[in-house]
Measured scan of single mutants.
Amino acid sequence: RDEDEKEKIKEALKRGNEDKAKEIAKRANVSPEEYERLRKEAE
């Protein structure tokens, strides 16, 4: 379940949809550090 959320965040970031990614991260309680890591992976 947690991994699904992280995949959704990465997908949103790949599409350049940072607002959606942040919204998912907030809902999934993803830490800022984890969010940054996902953002780097998505580049």
Rank of each mutant, 00 (worst) to 15 (best):
R1V: 15
R1C: 10
R1E: 13
R1Y: 14
D2Y: 15
D2H: 13
D2A: 12
E3H: 13
E3D: 14
D4K: 11
D4R: 12
D4E: 12
E5L: 15
E5N: 10
E5S: 13
E5F: 15
K6E: 07
K6R: 15
K6I: 15
E7S: 12
E7K: 14
E7V: 12
E7F: 13
E7I: 13
K8F: 06
K8S: 11
K8R: 13
K8T: 07
K8V: 05
K8P: 02
K8D: 07
K8W: 08
I9V: 06
I9S: 01
I9T: 01
I9G: 01
I9M: 03
I9C: 03
K10V: 07
K10E: 02
K10Y: 05
E11L: 10
E11S: 09
E11G: 08
E11P: 02
E11H: 08
E11Q: 11
E11I: 08
A12I: 03
A12W: 13
A12S: 06
A12Y: 12
A12R: 02
A12V: 02
A12L: 13
A12M: 11
L13S: 00
L13M: 08
L13F: 11
K14S: 08
K14L: 10
K14D: 02
K14F: 05
K14A: 09
R15H: 13
R15S: 14
R15L: 14
R15Q: 15
G16K: 04
G16D: 03
N17T: 04
N17G: 03
N17I: 03
N17S: 06
N17C: 06
N17E: 15
N17K: 08
E18N: 07
E18K: 07
E18Y: 14
E18Q: 09
E18M: 10
D19W: 10
D19S: 12
K20Q: 14
K20A: 14
K20T: 10
K20D: 11
K20G: 09
A21I: 01
A21W: 01
A21S: 02
A21K: 00
A21D: 01
K22S: 07
K22V: 08
K22R: 14
K22I: 11
K22W: 10
K22T: 07
K22F: 07
K22D: 04
E23P: 01
E23G: 05
E23M: 07
I24Q: 03
I24T: 03
I24D: 02
I24C: 04
I24E: 03
A25C: 04
A25K: 02
A25P: 01
A25Y: 01
A25T: 02
A25W: 00
A25L: 02
K26V: 10
K26H: 10
K26Q: 13
R27P: 02
R27C: 05
R27I: 09
A28D: 03
A28Q: 07
N29H: 10
N29T: 04
N29D: 08
N29A: 08
N29I: 03
V30E: 01
V30Q: 02
V30N: 00
V30I: 15
V30F: 07
V30T: 05
V30R: 01
S31D: 09
S31N: 08
S31G: 12
S31M: 06
S31W: 03
P32E: 11
P32L: 11
P32Q: 11
P32C: 06
P32S: 10
E33H: 06
E33A: 10
E33T: 08
E33N: 06
E33P: 04
E34R: 00
Y35A: 00
Y35V: 04
Y35R: 00
Y35W: 09
E36H: 04
E36A: 07
E36C: 12
E36V: 03
E36L: 07
R37W: 06
R37Q: 09
R37F: 06
R37N: 08
R37P: 00
R37G: 04
L38I: 10
L38Y: 05
L38S: 00
L38C: 03
L38F: 04
L38P: 00
L38T: 01
R39M: 06
R39I: 06
R39C: 03
R39H: 04
R39A: 08
R39K: 13
R39E: 04
K40N: 10
K40E: 12
K40H: 13
K40I: 14
E41N: 04
E41I: 08
E41A: 09
E41S: 06
A42S: 08
A42H: 04
A42E: 03
A42N: 05
A42F: 07
E43I: 14
E43D: 09
E43A: 12
E43V: 11
E43F: 15
